[in-house]
Measured scan of single mutants.
Amino acid sequence: MQGVVKVNSALNMRSGPGSNYGVIGTLRNNDKVEIIKEVDGWYEIRFNGKVGYASKSYITIVN
């Protein structure tokens, strides 16, 4: 499943599904990501070869 990031500035990509996990990357508005699965309001995603987590509130699913 594919998604597009929708933010005003930047979205942190984290090592786990929560804001208490470390930041491993930064996503920008309109970045395209691969959604692997949903975990407690977060998406596990793949972006630029990295796998991490981002809040699903800021990612819109596209077909």
Rank of each mutant, 00 (worst) to 15 (best):
M1N: 13
M1Q: 13
M1G: 11
M1F: 13
M1D: 07
Q2R: 08
Q2M: 12
Q2I: 07
Q2T: 10
Q2L: 15
G3S: 03
G3A: 08
G3K: 02
G3Q: 02
G3I: 03
V4W: 10
V4F: 06
V4Q: 11
V4L: 13
V4N: 05
V5C: 04
V5E: 01
V5D: 01
V5S: 02
V5G: 05
V5M: 03
V5Q: 01
V5H: 02
V7F: 07
V7W: 04
V7E: 04
V7K: 10
V7Y: 07
V7C: 05
V7G: 10
N8E: 11
N8F: 08
N8R: 04
S9H: 15
S9D: 15
S9A: 11
S9C: 05
S9Q: 13
S9F: 15
A10Y: 13
A10M: 14
A10I: 15
A10N: 15
L11H: 07
L11S: 05
L11N: 03
L11K: 12
L11P: 03
L11M: 11
L11Y: 07
N12K: 10
N12S: 12
N12C: 05
N12Q: 12
N12D: 15
N12E: 10
M13Q: 03
M13K: 00
R14H: 10
R14S: 07
R14A: 05
R14F: 12
R14N: 11
S15I: 08
S15T: 11
S15Y: 09
S15K: 07
G16E: 02
G16Y: 02
G16A: 03
P17R: 02
P17C: 02
P17A: 05
G18Q: 03
G18F: 02
G18P: 00
S19G: 12
S19L: 14
N20Q: 11
N20L: 14
N20E: 14
N20Y: 12
Y21L: 02
Y21M: 03
Y21H: 07
Y21Q: 03
Y21W: 10
Y21D: 03
Y21C: 04
G22L: 13
G22M: 08
G22P: 09
G22R: 14
G22F: 07
G22E: 15
V23M: 06
V23G: 04
V23W: 04
V23K: 09
V23R: 06
V23Q: 05
V23D: 04
I24E: 04
I24A: 06
I24Y: 02
I24G: 02
G25V: 11
G25I: 06
G25Y: 14
G25A: 09
G25Q: 11
G25C: 05
T26F: 12
T26Y: 14
L27Q: 01
L27G: 01
R28F: 12
R28H: 13
R28P: 03
R28Y: 15
R28D: 15
R28T: 08
R28L: 09
R28V: 12
N29A: 06
N29F: 08
N29P: 10
N29M: 09
N29R: 07
N30S: 11
N30Q: 09
N30G: 14
D31E: 11
D31P: 01
K32C: 04
K32T: 14
K32M: 15
K32D: 07
K32A: 07
K32Q: 07
V33T: 03
V33G: 01
V33I: 06
V33L: 08
V33A: 03
V33W: 02
V33E: 00
E34P: 03
E34Q: 11
E34L: 12
E34V: 08
E34A: 06
E34I: 06
E34D: 15
I35A: 02
I35W: 03
I35Q: 01
I36W: 05
I36S: 06
K37A: 09
K37Q: 09
E38R: 04
E38W: 05
E38F: 06
E38D: 07
V39F: 09
V39T: 08
V39K: 08
V39I: 15
V39N: 06
V39M: 08
D40K: 09
D40E: 15
D40F: 11
D40I: 08
G41Q: 10
G41T: 12
G41P: 06
G41H: 10
G41N: 12
W42R: 01
W42M: 03
W42K: 01
W42P: 00
Y43W: 09
Y43C: 04
Y43Q: 02
Y43E: 00
Y43T: 02
E44Y: 07
E44R: 06
E44I: 06
I45R: 00
I45P: 00
I45L: 10
I45V: 14
R46A: 07
R46K: 15
R46N: 10
R46M: 12
F47Q: 05
F47I: 14
F47L: 07
F47E: 03
F47S: 09
F47H: 09
F47P: 01
F47C: 04
F47M: 07
N48D: 12
N48T: 10
N48W: 06
N48K: 11
G49F: 13
G49R: 08
G49E: 11
G49A: 07
K50N: 15
K50T: 15
K50R: 14
K50I: 13
K50M: 10
V51P: 07
V51M: 11
V51F: 12
V51L: 13
V51Y: 15
V51W: 10
V51A: 12
G52D: 00
G52A: 13
G52R: 01
G52N: 01
Y53D: 00
Y53K: 00
Y53S: 00
Y53T: 00
Y53V: 00
Y53I: 00
A54K: 00
A54Q: 02
A54M: 04
A54P: 00
A54Y: 01
S55P: 15
S55Q: 14
S55A: 12
S55C: 05
S55W: 12
S55E: 15
S55G: 14
K56V: 15
K56T: 13
K56P: 06
K56E: 07
K56H: 10
K56R: 10
S57T: 14
S57V: 12
S57D: 15
S57E: 13
S57Q: 14
Y58D: 08
Y58V: 08
Y58K: 12
Y58N: 15
Y58W: 10
Y58I: 03
I59F: 05
I59H: 00
I59W: 02
I59Q: 00
T60V: 14
T60F: 13
T60W: 13
T60S: 09
I61H: 07
I61W: 05
I61P: 11
I61G: 05
V62R: 06
V62L: 07
V62H: 08
N63A: 13
N63M: 06
N63P: 13
N63W: 03
N63V: 15
